[in-house]
């Protein structure tokens, strides 16, 4: 039981960190621009597709990573310039309409270009096997993701804390009228934020691809998870997003792995086999409902 627990906890950490990379951009777009972007998950999906395609043609995993990140950054830049820039001032209903349309376009485009079947992507051979550590064995690739995720998260926090740009972002998230008061810098700030958010999301999409399937619609489940994360963490709060990502990652992973087992020891096997998977897949939404009920502004809200 114990090794299983540690392995699943590590998986939860790894998933949570990737979730953080996806949610980070989304929560800032939400908090600062007050804009709902349903198409954020599509950026994640397009990242995985571009990367997997590049990796398959060149044979280099790293080149795939660059293609995914830079390609989606470019797509994000175009989207910001031609679509989102006109959307910030509109109401939420228009934002839902437009970004829902973008999802449809993205899903059909990847089907058009790459077909219905999932695209294969293997982890780089150097990280294909497990690593042994004091009798525990753990997949090297997942360990790499934990390492990369931690590094990027630290980098992001340093950027936000120590640069002038980061100061603007934090000020804007804490107090939205403040963003307007910053004057000329606003369009540039929004642009950079959107592009960085898109790139981070694609980066995570590509890195997660060897562990999941690259297929149309893959962005939608992750989008909902990212929403759950930013609502739990508090909209616009980057620290909240980190805490909530890890919470969601761990609760989801552990719930799926351990809850059915746990129920089996508590009640009869038949009921457990019915209830276990149901409860496990509901667990993060229960978590979200609980957080919202007791703290409607999220765990670490940016403003009072």
């Amino acid at each position: 039981m114990l090794p299983l627990f540690f392995e699943q906890a590590a998986n939860g950490l790894q998933f949570g960190l990737m979730l953080f990379l996806i949610a980070a951009g989304l929560t800032l777009v939400f908090g600062i621009m007050d804009t709902i972007n349903l198409a954020h998950g599509s950026l994640y999906m397009v990242g995985a597709y571009l990367g997997a395609h590049a990796a398959a043609t060149t044979g280099s995993f790293l080149l795939g990573l660059f293609t995914a990140t830079l390609g989606v950054a470019a797509i994000g830049a175009l989207l910001e310039l031609f679509v989102f820039r006109r959307l910030y001032a509109r109401d939420h209903l228009d934002q839902v309409l437009v970004t829902f349309g973008l999802i449809l376009i993205a899903n059909e485009s990847v089907r058009w270009l790459w077909g219905d079947r999932p695209l294969p992507l293997d982890a780089p051979s150097a990280f294909a096997g497990p690593v042994e550590f004091h009798g525990f064995s753990y997949p090297a690739y997942r360990l790499l993701l934990i390492f990369v995720g931690l590094t990027l998260a630290a980098l992001l926090f340093a950027l936000l804390k120590f640069t002038r740009f980061g100061m603007w972002v934090r000020a804007g998230a804490a107090n939205r009228p403040m963003t307007e008061a910053m004057g000329v810098a606003v369009p540039r700030l929004f642009f950079v934020l959107f592009v960085v958010g898109a790139a981070l999301s694609a980066f995570a999409g590509y890195l997660l691809a060897p562990l999941s399937a690259v297929q149309p619609g893959m962005g939608e489940n992750i989008l909902i998870l990212a929403f759950v994360v930013i609502v739990i963490g508090g909209i616009g709060s980057i620290r909240g997003a980190l805490v909530a990502s890890l919470l969601v990652g761990v609760v989801d992973t552990l719930g799926r792995a351990l809850l059915p087992e746990l129920l089996r020891t508590l009640t009869n096997a038949q009921l457990a086999s019915h209830l276990g998977p149901t409860l496990a897949s509901m667990s993060i939404y229960l978590l979200m409902a609980a957080v919202l009920y007791f703290r409607p502004q999220g765990l670490l809200p940016t403003r009072l």
């Binding site: 309409l97 437009v98 829902f100 349309g101 973008l102 449809l104 899903n107 059909e108 089907r111």
Partner: peptide, 19 residues
């Protein structure tokens, strides 16, 4: 073969019909 692509464009066009 990809009808939803066009539906997506239609939604964008409806939202931005003023522009």
């Amino acid at each position: 073969a990809y009808p939803h692509f066009w539906i997506g464009l239609l939604l964008l066009a409806l939202a931005f019909r003023g522009e």
